[in-house]
Amino acid sequence: MARAALLWSRDDLAAASGVSWRTITRFEAGESVLPPRVQAMRRALEASGTVFIDSGRLVGGVIPPRD
């Protein structure tokens, strides 16, 4: 959802995070991905201004950056 909100392709996220597009595809399909790779993707998305909701009723949600 965060990647889609940014209108990023898998290649865009791969370039920003240093994680392969194949890993991104596996992650988005719900397959197992090493935690350091997940953190690299998260850091890249957060650097773009995306905010992840880590607690409360909306846990798991994202707030896309404002234009």
Rank of each mutant, 00 (worst) to 15 (best):
L58D: 15
T50A: 10
R26P: 02
V38W: 03
A2D: 05
E28V: 09
R57N: 12
R37N: 12
F52T: 05
A2W: 00
E31K: 06
D12R: 15
R26W: 01
D54R: 14
G49R: 08
A29Q: 04
W21K: 13
A2G: 12
P35S: 10
A15M: 10
R26I: 00
V62W: 00
T25R: 11
R43M: 05
P65L: 14
R43Y: 00
A4C: 09
G30T: 02
A47F: 05
L34K: 14
A5F: 06
A14N: 10
R10P: 02
P65C: 08
T25I: 08
T25P: 03
A29V: 03
L6S: 08
A40F: 01
V62L: 09
E46N: 07
V38C: 03
M41I: 03
W21P: 13
V51T: 15
R10E: 12
A44R: 00
R26T: 03
A47Y: 04
T50W: 02
A16L: 02
S20E: 12
D12N: 15
T25N: 04
L45F: 00
L13F: 07
W8T: 01
I24Q: 07
V38Q: 10
W8F: 12
I53W: 02
R66Y: 03
L45M: 05
A47T: 14
D12Q: 13
G56Q: 10
E46L: 05
R42W: 04
G30R: 01
P36K: 14
V19Q: 04
S55H: 15
G30H: 01
S9H: 08
R10K: 02
R42N: 02
V62E: 02
D11R: 14
T25F: 02
R10T: 03
S9P: 11
W21Y: 08
T23K: 10
R37E: 09
R3A: 12
A15N: 06
S17D: 07
A44C: 04
R57G: 12
Q39K: 15
A15Y: 00
W21L: 08
L6D: 10
G56F: 15
S32N: 09
A15I: 08
T50F: 08
S48Y: 01
D54C: 05
R57P: 07
V59H: 07
F27Y: 11
R42D: 06
A29F: 01
R57Q: 14
A29H: 00
A47R: 09
T50L: 11
D67L: 12
G30Y: 00
L34S: 11
A29E: 06
G60Q: 04
L45D: 00
F52R: 03
S48F: 01
A14H: 04
V59W: 00
A29T: 01
R57S: 15
G49S: 06
E46I: 04
D54Y: 10
P64V: 03
A40W: 00
V51R: 15
L13N: 14
L7T: 07
R57I: 12
E28I: 06
S20Y: 00
